[in-house]
Nucleic acid binder design. Structure first.
Lengths: 214, 214
DNA sequence: TTGCTCCTCACGTCACGTGAGGTGGC
DNA sequence: TTGCTCCTCACGTCACGTGAGGTGGC
């Protein structure tokens, strides 16, 4: 293992942080960060902090940036299970992207259905579509076989917008501050609220459904 | 271990599904469901399918409902990490019924909140409330701490009713026949459609949310 | 009988967590 | 010197995944 020696503390040089200082700086943004996790990420070569002569880890600002990036990817479930893919140059190529005709074919849909989905605001038009669009269009194709068309779901988009408005209003007290840790907390709270709203909604739908076949 | 024997196939009885049939029915809704995971969830006593005399697992419609519930909780990160907590009465304990004051206390709610939930048609009034009502009221109590009140969610009930109407209209060709097997098929189709609608809706909400903190 | 599904049990694995035992640094 | 942070290494754990070896069912 190659050990870089730490650069001398020059006036004006960016400070190098110990593992504890890194934690203190990032736990607000990533609450479940631990020393153990940092060591694990290094073992997986997702980060490569320098070392002091005696073996202490020292994190540069660019290490911090990289760490933030890795943790964000992981939090938003964009991290593929095998770390080996990080050997490839572009980390962001993790999500599959496909052109319009491939999307239509994979989803078992038709060009007309995609047009309808776009004009009903259920799928955002794009040059290259992602996995989310594929999942949605696949569902729309199956729903069409039951006689449910995209235009029947126009209300979904409006409801999602109203829900966003509700969540935004709940975030106002937190979102006023614009520093990174406050923004991260706001995002976390937003996801939490969305999850709770989904539980309420799914309960209502289940109980409505149960009236169908008791 | 107590082994229930499987009831004989009576005309009109709901069909019991093997582990493979359960998988076929749920992989669209929960793509990473596997036999291994189902067995694991049973080991953790989160589901308790019946067994044939020879030991094959058999899942009833209510097992399916419970499974859907457990998987949804898990997907939305509401499943507590330690399995030990399931020994204590919790949201996920099966078949539990409780009176009004116990519901309010367990949910961390207030009598007023339950009244509001009932008058906003988010919780159905009852003498004994079930785990579903507990889950909903718990969410409503947490939402209230973010400033979101039951009355803000009145639209949820109306949307659920519209969704039921949509599903009912899709069922008309199947539901015309009133024999047991047609009714069972209709119920299955209804749940399937509801699952697809949920995928579309959650995608819209996720994409709306992502506009909050890019 | 064949091919398929399903069973249990033991072990593997992935992403860490948890001490034990030891050293560095103001 | 003391108390704190940090180190490695071994082992534990949680939520499953993976065969091995065997039986059930149309």
């Amino acid at each position: 293992v190659l050990r870089e020696s730490v650069q001398a503390r020059v006036p004006g040089a960016a400070p190098l942080l110990s593992i504890g200082q890194v934690l203190a700086r990032l736990t607000a943004e990533f609450p479940d960060l631990t020393p153990s996790k940092l060591r694990f990420l290094e073992e997986r070569q997702l980060i490569s902090p320098a070392r002091t002569e005696s073996g202490y880890r020292k994190f540069s600002p660019s290490d911090l940036d990289r760490l933030r990036f890795v943790l964000t990817m992981q939090r938003d479930h964009y991290l593929p299970p095998g770390g080996s893919t990080f050997a490839s140059p572009s980390i962001l190529s993790a999500e599959r992207r496909m052109p319009r005709d491939e999307l239509i074919r994979e989803a078992g849909a038709t060009p007309q259905l995609l047009n309808d989905a776009v004009s009903s605001s259920l799928v955002a038009p794009a040059d290259l579509y992602g996995e989310e669009a594929l999942a949605v269009l696949t569902c729309l194709a199956e729903l069409q076989r039951s006689g449910i068309e995209p235009r029947h779901l126009r209300g979904f988009r409006a409801a999602a917008e109203r829900e966003l408005g509700l969540i935004e209003s709940a975030l106002i007290p937190v979102a006023r501050r614009k520093d990174a840790s406050s923004r991260a907390k706001a995002g976390e709270l937003a996801r939490e609220i969305a999850g709770q709203l989904e539980i309420v909604r799914s309960s209502l739908i289940r109980s409505a459904l149960s009236r169908l076949d008791p």
